[in-house]
Amino acid sequence: MAARRKNPIKATIPPGRARSVGALLLAPLRFAGAWTARISLGILAAYLALIVLYDVLDPPTTFTMWSEKQRLGKLDQEWTDFEDIAPVMARSVVAAEDANFCTHWGFDMGAIRQAIDKGANRGASTLSQQVTKNVFLWQGRSWLRKALEALLTPAVEAVWTKRRILEVYLNVAEFGEGVFGVNAAAFHYFRTTPAKLTPRQASLLAAVLPDPKDRNAARPSRYVSKRANQIADGAATIKADGRADCFSP
């Protein structure tokens, strides 16, 4: 008669000890998750503090200005209060970059849908988004930067007035290589001050904004000149139909 085969001995871990081992393995993940959440909240709180601070204080610089200064050695930029900028300059920038600036809450959903339909990126970004990117973030198209922009833009809209958003934009926007803000741009291209800009000069400055390093407001190409004419018409239109009321004197 064949010998009966003995059952193998199975190693077992008591249920209590199994739970403790599992908890021990998960502890580093929980620790990392907790610290990630704390760091994220800290960064968000710092951004919100800066948004509140820059509602009353002028931003001293931006990441783009800092990086360009490292590259060029110097920059031309001087802050100008909104009251000292020709109203037509403000209307020209809005007409060129964000005609519905006064009617949206930071995102122009209609423009975004049109940009998606056309397969284009340019034209969907509002002035509020551009200010958020320029003042608080960095250039580029990374998902992290876009996510932060999406989070911070509504906060900027909630804390700042439309007039403040436009004032900051006009003072930090790049108008040429090493030329930042309307004060520097007015002098660089036309040897004048922001308060004395003519409608034609204002529309030319607005026309260089999408490509400031390759466009010249003082010596405009045929395309830039034509674009400036369109901007001048748009500036007159938003003044007439009320879409400039939120920042007009």
Rank of each mutant, 00 (worst) to 15 (best):
L197R: 06
D81F: 05
L152T: 02
S67L: 12
P87W: 09
Y189K: 04
R71I: 11
P15Q: 06
M65K: 01
S203P: 05
V131P: 04
F180T: 04
Q129M: 15
R19W: 15
T61M: 07
G33N: 10
V179C: 09
A46Q: 13
A99C: 00
A11M: 12
A147I: 12
T153P: 10
E167L: 02
S92L: 04
P220Y: 04
P220V: 09
Q70N: 14
V159D: 00
L209P: 01
S248H: 11
F190G: 06
V224D: 02
E68V: 13
R30Y: 11
Q139E: 14
N134H: 04
M109D: 02
R19E: 11
L204I: 09
L26R: 04
A202C: 08
A120V: 15
R145M: 07
V94Y: 01
E83R: 12
A2Q: 11
D98R: 04
N121V: 13
A37D: 06
I116M: 13
P154V: 09
P14T: 11
A235F: 12
P87E: 03
K226L: 15
D117C: 00
W35D: 02
P212N: 08
L205M: 05
K162V: 06
E177H: 08
P210R: 02
E97Y: 09
T198F: 11
S92E: 06
P154R: 10
T161C: 04
Q114T: 14
D58G: 01
L57K: 11
G42Q: 10
T237F: 13
A46V: 09
S248Q: 13
M89S: 09
T36E: 01
T198A: 03
L148A: 10
R200N: 10
A185P: 04
N183I: 00
R5D: 02
K118M: 14
V208H: 05
A3C: 07
P60D: 09
M89V: 12
P210H: 09
A150C: 06
R219N: 15
L209F: 03
Y169H: 11
C246Y: 06
N229D: 12
W35S: 08
R17I: 15
R215E: 14
V172N: 04
L148H: 05
T80E: 07
T161S: 15
V208I: 10
A232V: 02
V208E: 00
D211I: 02
S203T: 06
G110I: 11
C102T: 08
S67G: 00
K6M: 10
V131F: 01
L75Q: 07
D211P: 01
N7Q: 12
S125T: 09
I116C: 01
E68P: 00
Q201A: 03
A185N: 06
N216T: 07
A195Q: 13
L151Q: 07
R19M: 13
R17N: 05
S225F: 07
A46L: 14
A186E: 02
L152Q: 03
R5N: 05
H188V: 01
A99F: 11
A206Y: 05
S248Y: 13
P60K: 12
K226I: 03
P14F: 05
A96N: 03
